[in-house]
Design a protein around this nucleic acid. Structure first.
Length: 376
RNA sequence: GUGGAUGUAGCUUAGUUGGUUAAAGCGCCGGUUUGUGGCACCGGAGACCGUGGGUUCGAGUCCCAUCUUCCACC
């Protein structure tokens, strides 16, 4: 259930209540694709880093270790030891990212597994069954994420199929939640808006899926090749037709700047691999801008990554040492780098919430926008 | 001392019967990364081919000398 606490123009400060606790929004979900944050960051670390929601992936956990294994181990919460809310992505994005290894029909999608090449069929019912076995707090609808730019005719066709799939998802989820063998019988379902960069398709699709009265709504298929300005334009068109009393999730986005702009337009929830993936490659977010710890200029720099950061890494380790660990291929570098970036993102969201609480989000955004995009 | 190997980018090497701006891996430098097929990907700098002569239209490649390192034998 979503509760709007306060708004500043289109930007929303709210709470999202789940059977695993209340999420203060706007919030950023930390991506743990295979049930763990890449970079040796544990579930207990996530609490320290200010993470509210963990995100895992249906496709990846189905391939390995298998969703039935997770179910038999008591569900993903017990399995991973993360006791806060978990959102599972449906495998829809893999329709996009594994494009070379797939075939789409009305029934669903056939992939070749990226692990061993074997054929895997996934449709709406399969995705719901898997997510039910995982027992996540929130399941995502099985959709097709289309690459931009796309032909109007294909975008429309794909969008309509995603609607038909969503109806099947809703029905299957209701059935599964009624079974007494279900790990989480209160599992929620979010619908996903598609329509590529065509605002008429986006708006029509959003209105249509809003009628289904789901637990939340996501905007998908953005940040997949279109210019940033186009993404903002789509959000400006779609947010006004999203239900006010439901949480709004922008999938896979993004940079700190993207997040500020999306919050301004009315988005409540985000996820992105950027803080973790970039961290593993030495690309760090700081209160002064972006740094690349690989750069030679940090060789003897004994200051922390960010001297204004309160994260456990910045309180103890120097840039010089972390750079050395990264260059030397030490595992500890991955852990320290990822922890810093996740802290940065989670605390950026906290700062955004505070700004909304204080009614000075616009000012906050203007100030941070200048800083967060630049390289230092 | 004698005989035999060796010498090409910071490192390890490839360079065909002599033929245009000498190649690669690693390292170094810089960049990319948006519902994670990602310890990944893209780009860049860097070599008077041990040194000095010679043969040739042309030499990293052939010849001579010299030095380096290594091996074997006295």
């Amino acid at each position: 259930m979503y509760k709007l606490i306060k708004n500043e123009k289109s930007a929303r400060r709210g709470e999202f209540i789940t059977n695993r606790g209340t999420v203060q929004t706007p919030a950023f979900m930390n991506v743990a694709t295979a049930g763990a944050i890449k970079g040796a960051v544990s579930a207990t670390d996530l609490k320290t880093l200010g993470c509210q929601v963990m995100l895992s992936n249906t496709y990846h956990l189905h391939v390995r270790p298998g969703d039935e294994v997770v179910r038999d181990c008591g569900g993903l919460h017990k399995f991973s030891t993360w006791d806060g809310p978990i959102l599972t992505d449906s495998g829809g994005f893999q329709v996009f990212s594994l494009a070379k290894l797939r075939q789409i029909t009305e029934e669903g999608v056939t992939f070749n597994s990226h692990i061993d090449g074997r054929k895997i069929f996934m449709g709406p019912e399969e995705s719901m069954q898997i997510q039910s076995n995982l027992g996540s707090t929130i399941a995502m609808a099985f959709d097709e994420c289309v690459e931009n730019p796309a032909e109007y005719s294909y975008a429309k066709e794909s969008c309509e199929r995603t609607t038909r799939w969503l109806i099947r998802c809703k029905q299957k989820m209701a059935e599964l939640n009624r079974l007494d063998t279900t790990v989480n019988p209160e599992q929620m379902l979010f619908g996903i808006n598609q329509g590529c960069t065509y605002n008429d398709l986006r708006i029509e699709h959003m209105k249509r899926i809003a009628e289904l009265d789901l637990d939340g709504y996501a905007v998908g298929g953005l940040a997949v090749g279109e210019p940033t300005e186009v993404m903002y334009d789509v959000l400006e068109n779609v947010c006004p037709v999203m239900p006010d009393d439901k949480i709004r999730y922008l999938m896979g986005v993004g940079t700190p700047l993207n997040i500020l702009n999306a919050v301004e337009r009315g988005i409540d929830l985000f996820d992105c691999v950027m803080p973790s993936r970039n961290a593993r490659h030495g690309h760090l977010f700081t209160s002064k801008g972006i740094i690349n710890i690989n750069n030679n200029k940090y060789e003897k720099d004994m200051s922390p990554i960010d001297d204004e950061c309160g994260c456990p890494v910045c309180r103890r380790y120097s840039r010089a040492y972390i750079r050395h660990l990264l260059k030397a291929g030490e595992m500890l570098s991955q852990r320290l780098l990822v922890m810093h970036n996740l802290w940065f993102y989670n605390h950026l969201m906290e700062d955004i919430r505070n700004a909304l609480d204080n009614g000075n989000f616009a000012e906050f955004k203007r100030e941070k926008e200048e800083i967060y995009g630049r390289r230092v």
